[in-house]
Computed example of a mutant assay.
Amino acid sequence: MYPTQACLRPFIRHVMAGAAGRYVRAPNLQHRRGLITLKDHIFFSKATAEGAGRNGKVKSFGDAPLELKLAMPKAAGGKGDGQNPEQLFAMGYSGCFLGALQLAAARAGKKELAENAKVHATVFLGHPKDPDMEGFGLRVEIGVEGCDDDAIIAAAHEFCPYSRALTRGVEVDVKKV
């Protein structure tokens, strides 16, 4: 099992298409599952977490630094007086997928189909079904509103780095610094 599978337990079940709420199966990429490795990089982002873990703080660096207080959600027994990693993940995924959707539409010569689209990402935190696995896992649902072209949605899912990381795996190096 790859590290990202063991740590994140991603399950992208459906891609919601259009305002009517039709569901389209996400492409089955399991037969190609492996790790995506990079030959180079054009950008990197760095963030640091410190303090009391999920009740500490996170800070990003770069062009527009951001610092946030973290807090366990009330539903998980916390105070809920700050952001949580799942919110941040959902925000990043929805923004990235929207960009991929608009790019896929433009490449298909149908730019207007995604100009006013919205992408909703829902990230579920829960216990894995596997009784031998401790800790938590994630499940993600992506809802696409305002674009009902299934081929464009599938192309966006194939192109989006978040989708690729969750469906194909991503190289993760954990080391002491």
Rank of each mutant, 00 (worst) to 15 (best):
T4Y: 10
Q5P: 00
A6T: 07
A6R: 08
F11P: 00
F11I: 04
I12W: 05
R13N: 09
H14W: 09
G18A: 03
A20G: 14
G21M: 04
Y23A: 14
V24D: 04
A26I: 10
N28A: 14
N28V: 12
L29Y: 03
H31V: 08
R32A: 14
L35P: 00
L35A: 05
I36M: 11
T37F: 05
T37A: 12
F43G: 09
S45Q: 09
K46W: 01
R54F: 11
R54E: 03
K57I: 10
K57C: 09
V58M: 14
V58F: 08
G62R: 11
D63M: 10
P65D: 09
L66Q: 13
M72G: 03
M72V: 15
K74I: 13
A75F: 03
A75D: 12
G80I: 07
L88Y: 04
F89T: 03
F89P: 08
G92S: 13
S94C: 11
S94Q: 04
G95F: 00
L98V: 08
G99Y: 01
G99P: 01
Q102V: 06
Q102I: 03
G109Q: 06
K110R: 15
K111H: 05
K111Y: 00
E112I: 02
L113M: 12
E115F: 01
N116A: 14
A117Y: 08
K118L: 14
H120V: 15
T122R: 15
P128S: 09
D130T: 04
D132A: 14
D132N: 14
M133V: 12
M133K: 13
E134V: 09
F136A: 13
F136M: 11
G137H: 04
L138C: 05
E141Y: 11
V144N: 03
V144I: 15
E145T: 04
G146R: 06
D148K: 03
D149N: 14
D149Q: 09
D149S: 12
D150Y: 01
A151M: 03
A154L: 08
A155D: 13
A155S: 12
P161I: 02
S163V: 05
R164I: 03
L166M: 13
L166W: 02
T167A: 12
T167G: 07
R168P: 00
G169P: 02
E171F: 08
E171T: 11
V174S: 08
V174K: 00
